[in-house]
Each structure stands twice: as C-alpha cells, then as structure tokens.
Write a protein that binds this DNA or RNA. Structure first.
Lengths: 288, 288
DNA sequence: ACCGTTATGTATGATTTGATACGCAAATGC
DNA sequence: GCATTTGCGTATCAAATCATACATAACGGT
C-alpha cells in the first residue's frame, strides 16, 4: 500500500466512531505536525483522551504509536528528498470505466510531452520571459479556465500579463493596445470557436506574436500562430479532455519560474510580503 | 542545500571534538532521519555513546533533545509547505526535466484515481445530478480556474450552477441564498487559503453540503466537508500541479453527462440550437 | 615524559511516555 | 423500554527515554 497516511485516514474516516474522528480531524488540521507530538499532546489538541488516540492509531493498522510516527516521518522525508521516487507503483487494479479514463488521460499527457521537445519549450520561454513584451491570454468556452490558470501564475512571475475575458466587447478594447511587442496566447480545442479565430486574426494583423495551444486536429488559428503546441485530448467521454494542455501549461510555468531564478524569486518574495500586510482582493493566502 | 540546522552543523563541525563530529556526520548522512530517532538509536548509528549525542545537541545551542527534534520537524514541514524554498532545490537538478514532469503528472493522475473509487463517484454524481439542488463552485487563487472549468461544463448539463468568483465581498452575497438544499464545491490545495476556509465554514453552518477537492495533505476544509476528494499534486516544480484535480473534474463531468442521458442530451441539443443562431461570442461565459 | 585539560564511556537516577485494565456512559437492537 | 453492545475516560503500570554524575582515557603543551 503506497498511499499516504492522510489518504488512509480519508478512506476510513467514515467508519470511525466520533472520538476517533475528532482525532483524525485534529491530525489533518495541521497535518502532520500533531501526529509527531506525544500521545498526550495529540489527545489534548484533539480534545479527547490518550487511549482514544491510541485506538485511532491502532485502527489505521499501526501496531503502536512509534510505528505510526515513523510512518509520518518517512512520508515527510520522502516528500523532501525525492519528489517523485514513488512514481510507477502500478498496483494491479480491476479495470472499470474510471481506470480507463485515468489511463487515457495519463497516456494523453505522455504522448503530448513526447512531441513537445526541449527546443519548443525554449522558444516559448524565451518569448514569455522577455520583460519588454506584454502578454495577453484568451481561451474558448471551456478552455478559458486554462487561460485563467496560466495568467494567475504568469502574473506572479512577471509583469504585464492580461487575461482577456468576459464579453466580446471587452475583447475589442484589449485589441487596441496591442502591437508588435505583444504576445497573445490562445487556447482553442474543438469545437473551435469562430470568435476566437476572428480575434486571433485581428491580433495577427497588428503584428502580435500569437501562441496557440490546441488539440491534435489543430484549430484554424494554427495558420495565424507563430508557435503552435499540439496536445492530445481524446478520452472515453462525451467531452474532450484538456488535461494535457493543462499539464503543458504547468511545465511552462515551472520552467519560467526556474529560469527567472533570482528575479522571479525576488518578485515572488515581494508579493508574499505584500500579501502579509495587505490582504489582496484575490484573497489572502495564509502564511502559516 | 538543507535547512538552517544542517548549515549550523557545517559551521561548527570544525570546532567539535572527534566523537561529536562522528555524531554530526551520522546525522548528515541521511539527514534528518537519524535525528528524529531516540538518543540511544542515534548514538548507536553514530558509533558513540548516548551522552556524546546529548553533548552534541547541546553544542548546537539546543537546551534539550526534545527541542532539537522539534526544530528538525519544523524544518521538514517548512520545506514541504513553502514553494519558494523548493525552487532552490530543483534548480540544482539536470534540465532533462520535461519527461520527469510528464511522468510525475501522469503518475499523479493514476495514483489519484487509484484512491477514487466507484462509490465515491456515485455519491458525488448522485448529489450533482439532483435537479432540486443548487450548485455553487469556488476555488483559491490558482484553483479558481478549476471551478471555472467545472462550472462551464455543469452549466450545460444542468441548471442552477453558480461560479462564485471575483471580489471576496461578492462571496458574502452568494452566501445569503444558500441553504440545506445547496451544494458548495470548493477547490483548495496548499497553500490553503484562510478565506476559503472561512467561506466554507459559514456555508457549512447554513447546512450546505460541502464537497472538497484538495491535495493529499488535505485542506483544513476537510473538517467541514461532507465529501472530500484527495488528489496528488507533487511535481518537480516550484508549484504544485493541479492536473489530477483537473482530471477528476473531467471524469465527473463525463459521468454526469452519461447518467443524465436523455435529459442532458436534450438540454445540450437545446443549447446548441440556441448557439447555432448566434455564433461564437460565448455569451454565457460567466463574468469575472 | 609528565601533568593538566579535555573528551568520552559506564552506570545510575528521575521523569516521561506509551500502553492496558476497568468502570461508566451512550448508542443500538429487539 | 429493557438488554446488549460499543465507545470513551480515569487510574494505573511497566518500560523506555533523557539527563547527569563520575571515573577513565586521550590529548596537548611544557
């Protein structure tokens, strides 16, 4: 069983008596800190008695409290030391529709990355890291969420990032400020949106550098785009899966953060500091 | 490099007597595992006696062994939780990281689905398919995009779907209309947002059914949630990956569409017909 | 080579910790 | 509504832990 302890708890939470459930909740409240304390401390934080803690631990199939703590520690250390040592732990599973879907998504992602080479990424990061350029992002009906996700991250790494959203009338406003220095990132998978193509065409006419994320059947926008990233989207569902686009976005953001190095780190630190004092409109991420 | 304690050791290593130096080396060898064991165990591994360990700890300006261990634990937890620090760690890694990243995301998704059983999905779809309920979705700083993505799909399958977005003041307005029939879907991965917890708590107080999508370390909202879906998020990056949450959302939408059957199909057809007349300007995208 | 200093291990004590037995309360079933 | 089961807390015990005192060994300077 390669699962984390918190997952184990999640599985068994329903089958626990009230007291032990309180123990579980106290543990996950600031996981895994409380579990590393003494039994008495744990009990106190959970508002139950020591034996209840021990019964709780026992219910998780640990022979004693020491074993339990060791497991927590190992979990922590594994996280820090080898981020993905646990990768391929294929446990033989009954193949239901669920697993088929998961398999499909996973293989989509792998296929997508197989065709997305280091040079592709370098070209993209070079453009996106350029501080002299402004970046605009837009997506279709469903893929707009991807534009939103990417812009949320980019905004932290660098300045001049705009997510073009909302009514189409807003789009026009965004266009007037665009020029040769600007970059437009478009997400478009089938069924491709007419309006996105129109928008991209106008932008391209202004000399904007268009970057397109699309599926393997290629949005018509590919004709306009300077760079096109092709992602697999086929899954056993009524809908196409955008998960592989999502993953590509994530790896780009990761790489940009890495390359930004000191600059990005400083910027992030600055934002964090600001956040501490003035809770932003975006919601204050708690510093813990 | 590691945290402050290992640095501290490095600084003082030269000024230490032989025995304590052996202790230090044993600790560094598989840092910080040995330091979390008992004094006797530590001594045994270092090939010295217990008092030497205690003197070693004392030389690092810790008042007692317990303090020392607490410091090690805090350091570990700190590293796991702070994205900034991880940037440093990974910048040392070789740049062949593309495939590693893809591997990590793929295996995250598989692991996530391995713990997401058919019953879990049934419970969720049963709730989400109930036309008598209203559905509200909300996400954190980055995960809000997931809420957006899911709501875009849900809105097509069924009525009464609201994406709670924008300023926090808007959130309050959404609350007043909620009641026992309502469902609140929250996306929250670390670093968990205080504001989301507050929102969820108020909703739960109103009797709203809270469904939580979170990472394997569990958002504190798990305490409030009727159903919690645990997803893997660890990747070799400064950021956590939400791709597995994304995939779970997709499979839920797929299943709901399937179960909806005729009803959903009719609804979709109706919407398509409406859209057919007015091409493209996805007017039904929610405002932000 | 001797002496003083420092370092280290052995032995022991005081304290804390985890574990268990038992009795009462709450929940469940008939 | 009663009886049985299940859960939970108090009190207690045994064991392991940290901490210290002391004697011995190693080291370094003269």
């Amino acid at each position: 069983m390669g699962g984390s302890i918190s997952e184990l708890i999640g599985d068994r939470l329903a089958a626990m008596p009230a007291g032990e459930r309180r123990a579980a909740q106290a543990l996950i409240a600031d996981y895994p800190l409380t579990g590393l304390k003494t039994v008495a401390e744990f009990a106190s934080r959970a508002g139950v008695s020591s034996p209840t803690i021990l019964r709780f631990v026992s219910r998780l199939d640990f022979h004693n409290y020491a074993d339990f703590q060791s497991a927590l520690q190992s979990e922590l250390i594994e996280q820090v030391q080898s981020p993905l040592l646990r990768t391929r732990r294929h446990s033989a599973l009954p193949a239901g529709g669920l697993d088929q879907f998961a398999e499909a998504v996973a293989s989509n992602i792998e296929e997508t990355f197989a065709h997305f080479h280091a040079e592709d990424m370098n070209r993209l990061t070079q453009i996106l890291a350029d501080p002299k350029r402004s970046i605009h992002l837009i997506g279709g009906r469903f893929t707009d969420a991807l534009a939103s996700y990417m812009s949320a991250h980019l905004r932290i790494i660098r300045a001049d990032v705009q997510h073009v959203a909302g009514q189409e009338s807003n789009w026009r406003d965004a266009l007037v400020d665009m020029g040769k220095r600007d970059v437009l990132i478009i997400f478009d998978i089938r069924r491709y949106q007419e309006s996105l193509f129109a928008f991209g065409k106008m932008a391209a006419g202004l000399g904007v550098t268009v970057i397109l994320f699309t599926d393997q059947w290629l949005s018509p926008i590919a004709r306009l785009a300077k760079h096109t990233v092709t992602c697999r989207t086929a899954v056993p569902s009524a809908w196409d899966s955008s998960a592989s686009l999502f993953a590509i976005v994530e790896v780009l953001v990761a790489q940009l953060t890495l390359e930004g190095g000191a600059t990005a780190a400083k910027r992030i630190a600055g934002l964090e500091a600001l956040r501490g004092g003035v809770p932003g409109p975006d919601g204050d991420r708690n510093a813990r």
